[in-house]
């Protein structure tokens, strides 16, 4: 009976968590290109970091959105297994230093060992017009949480917001107006 109760508590405890999702909303009149996505450990250390290996850049036409969410429902890992998402990446690279990295398909058996635990979103790299931006948590001195620019005669703003629905259930939203 005791075991059963533990089983029930743990089971429903796990179910109360949900996946993490990255959402890119392009509400501007410009085309936006997603060049890649980067994550880091929950301890905010620079390394190891994990970057998407871009098979082809992901285009977001004006007025459209793209998402990447985990089909695994993992409590600790970021949703790397993104092949079912609109932001589909088939390869990821794990950097342990600026010059040392390994790569693997995100749906391979090495998924867990490659990516480890406690990963979280850091930034997406996007191109608006001819300018590249890293937009995200502002960690590692490499990304911005809000910025603005001009492409031709069209001005735009880029913002980053986190919608923390519950612990472990977060939407990371990048919006281009």
């Amino acid at each position: 009976m005791k075991k059963f109760l533990i089983l029930v508590v743990v089971f429903f405890g796990l179910q109360s968590f949900a996946q993490k999702t990255v959402i890119v909303n392009n509400f501007s009149s410009l085309q936006v290109t997603i060049l890649g996505l980067n994550t880091i450990g929950n301890n905010n250390a620079v390394y190891p970091s994990i970057r998407s290996v871009t098979p082809a850049n992901i285009i977001i036409p004006a007025g459209q959105s793209r998402t990447m969410s985990s089909p695994t429902g993992s409590l600790t890992q970021f949703p790397y297994n993104s092949t079912a998402s609109a932001m589909a990446y088939t390869q990821w690279r794990r950097f342990t230093s600026a010059t040392t990295s390994t790569t693997s398909p995100n749906n391979s058996g090495t998924f867990t060992t490659l990516y480890g635990n406690g990963q979280k979103f850091n930034f997406v790299e996007i191109r608006v017009g001819t300018t590249n931006w890293k937009v995200g948590t502002g960690l590692n001195g490499s990304s911005v949480t809000t910025t603005s620019g001009i492409s031709g005669s069209t001005s735009y703003t880029v913002t980053y917001t986190e919608n923390v629905i519950a612990p472990g259930n977060v939407q990371y939203i990048i919006q281009i107006n």
């Binding site: 948590t137 502002g138 809000t146 703003t157 986190e162 923390v164």
Partner: peptide, 19 residues
């Protein structure tokens, strides 16, 4: 909401802008 960002969004310890 995005246009009102500077006054409406708070930032947590590691510069995470939380809604």
């Amino acid at each position: 909401m995005s246009d009102n960002r500077n006054v409406l969004i708070s930032k947590t310890g590691f510069d995470n802008p939380v809604m």
